[in-house]
Nucleic acid binder design. Sequence first.
DNA 1: TGCGCCATTTACGTTTACGTCAATTCTATA
DNA 2: TATAGAATTGACGTAAACGTAAATGGCGCA
Lengths: 153, 153
Amino acid sequence: MKLISAGETAANTNNASVEVGEDLSRIGEMAKKYGVTLRTLRFYEDKGLLHPQRDGSTRLYTRRDKARLKLILLGRKVGFSLRDVKQMMDLYDPKGSNTKQLRLALDKSEKQLARLQKQRALIDDAINELGGSMSAVRQMLAERSTPQASVAS
Amino acid sequence: MKLISAGETAANTNNASVEVGEDLSRIGEMAKKYGVTLRTLRFYEDKGLLHPQRDGSTRLYTRRDKARLKLILLGRKVGFSLRDVKQMMDLYDPKGSNTKQLRLALDKSEKQLARLQKQRALIDDAINELGGSMSAVRQMLAERSTPQASVAS
DNA sequence: TGCGCCATTTACGTTTACGTCAATTCTATA
DNA sequence: TATAGAATTGACGTAAACGTAAATGGCGCA
């Protein structure tokens, strides 16, 4: 019962640097809120994907960091590597049209889409192959008599 | 031009142990025939999946080894781990109905099938998500005017 | 002031299926 | 016999995304 009551009470004790109504979160809240582990958040930071502020040594995640994390998780979901995600995010320029970023993202997305489709094809293959093998095996188990090797060609 | 002419000429030089008309292959032939690398074949042996004979130190793969390799490759294709493949193959008993082996294979296959289907669902999700993001990005690139962040919720 | 909990840093471990040398030997052929 | 092309073993590297352990620090509260 020493928690900070789910992210409300945390923001008004000892903030001196930033002015606007912040909703800073510490690592534990972040982890719960986004379903990742503490280790993961530190790992992302280590990899240069997140840059939380520090209060002393305590990480404080801003609205920005949360947006970035969402992007990371989306990227991960669609199968980008963290390196790709970083590369794309590193191009983000708060003042500017971000055309380069968008082009890169689109480019990577097309490639990733192709990969995903290839993967899906492979999986479909595997599913079919496996289905075939399974019914063969079922047959062999049914005809409890002629034991032959399970693969011919 | 020092190859053994694709597996025909190799069998009648200095075999003394086995009698029947063998078609032994050395590692290079195997690799080509099955589209794997030498390293892979040695790796499989190291993991106990293959047990080629030796002529001195040279590996000689028999018909058996080829059948086993086919099984390994099939297993790999449908997404089994080498450990799984080994476990299943280790149950093979040349004299016997191999009921246990078949049951295990079927069991593992069912689980693997489930995994594959789950994977496919994930990939479909990813494809859809990616498709959505891509058209959003395309729009942003088209409306060369209002630069907003690419992800909202 | 001491307990309990949260947090931090550092570093090594895990998993899978090989790739990539490196050093050396073996073998076949010109 | 020299030499090129196989083959061998051994060891280290790779990729991704963290897990886990250990030692330590700081905070709130009874």
